[in-house]
Design a binder for these strands. Structure first.
Lengths: 205, 205
DNA sequence: TTTTACAAACCGACTAGTCGGTATTTCACT
DNA sequence: AGTGAAATACCGACTAGTCGGTTTGTAAAA
């Protein structure tokens, strides 16, 4: 697959440009000029600039959902599932930082027809994580005194926020950061009696 | 102060409209129409739409910095300082949710002259928190095996992300959420030997 | 009289989307 | 395989509309 389709080149260029300057500050003219194409070519592949934005959103969130579900299916205890999901998510966030930036900063620019679909998928992603937390609480592996919705959003926030500050050129790799996050989350929510199982994921002092 | 100045009315309306629809989707015409004023009045009070956006940013971040610093000054141990800052921050985030949405989603729309100032202040806010973490590590109250920069960003992410999902009409108040966050953070980072001092902030199971 | 505070019409730059056209590929039929 | 027609992919000048900002006007305050 040496030859990239024009459509793919448009998407790739847009992801880059949208991340840098934001959806509204990037014109269709600029996108096509950037890849040496034309407006005709653009509107042959997309019915609108909106549709392009939607496609970028969808590719990303669908991938996140699929990966999260795979991490869930691969293991069978709350702690291992949670760790796998944390690892998977940060990995995705490492690779798709540009997509995430667009996903979380430009979703308001989606027209109504698209935003419903995207919002549903976003909720689905959260639900997968929340299910792990809830199941862990039922099994008394995670502390039941913490509301599982808040715990879920605390974790989601911690991870999602990385797109704002993580630099691949920074002093720590995403793997190292993941280890710290995993440590913090497990310490925060695992019960005393289940801490034995979690010990292997805790950083030694 | 029954009479609000036009300037204040413009700011208030803009905060509301920007949060709802985003900076680029709200025209100056719409702002002035919303409050029953004119474009002349707008440009009498602001030299540009950019300046208005800047002012909204600045009011908010300056307040956050001031409140964070006050929380720091009010106490004299890492744990109490951290708890006070968590409480202060979530309180601010409860009150200024619209400002925060704008602050974190529209800062890219700031022109260069303004964005430098805002970015510096944003870093300053983070530094105040990071200092508490670092001081806690020096005092062996917080675990030194966790890099303080990552811990800081994990906390910042957890708190900041609330602006995406917290609803004042939701089942939990911001105070209750703060208690959960505080519990999780302390459990995650306080050392075994200092846990005694932190116990009062931990939710009992 | 000058300044302040706002109103309302207006302008110029910019941009999403269109449309008529051309190059390239696909494919049915010899 | 070779051919030609139809479908597909792409081009680029043009348009209609939008929006930030300006200019001119005006009434009250200082």
């Amino acid at each position: 697959m040496v030859k990239k389709t024009l459509k793919q080149r448009i998407v790739d260029a847009s992801v880059e440009l949208f991340q840098q300057d934001g959806y509204h500050n990037v014109t269709v003219d600029r996108i096509v000029e950037y890849i040496g194409a034309s407006k005709g070519g653009f509107y042959h592949n997309f019915k609108s600039k909106d549709e392009l934005l939607y496609e970028i959103h969808d590719v990303f969130i669908s991938y996140v959902i699929q990966q999260s579900q795979a991490a869930y299916d691969k293991f069978d205890t709350p702690i291992t599932r949670l760790c796998a999901m944390l690892q998977t998510l940060t990995q995705v966030f490492d690779m798709y930082q540009a997509h995430i930036t667009i996903f979380y900063e430009e979703s308001r620019s989606l027209s109504d027809e698209y935003s419903d679909i995207i919002h549903k998928k976003r909720d689905h992603y959260r639900d997968i994580l929340q299910r792990v937390i809830a199941e862990g609480q039922e099994a008394k592996v995670f502390r039941t005194e913490l509301p599982c919705t808040i715990v879920t959003m605390a974790i989601v926030g911690m991870i999602n926020w990385t797109y704002k500050w993580f630099k691949q050129s920074g002093p720590l790799t995403m793997e190292q950061i993941t280890d710290v996050f995993t440590d913090m989350v497990l310490r925060a929510i695992v019960t005393e009696q289940a801490m034995g199982e979690a010990k292997q994921f805790i950083i030694k002092g």
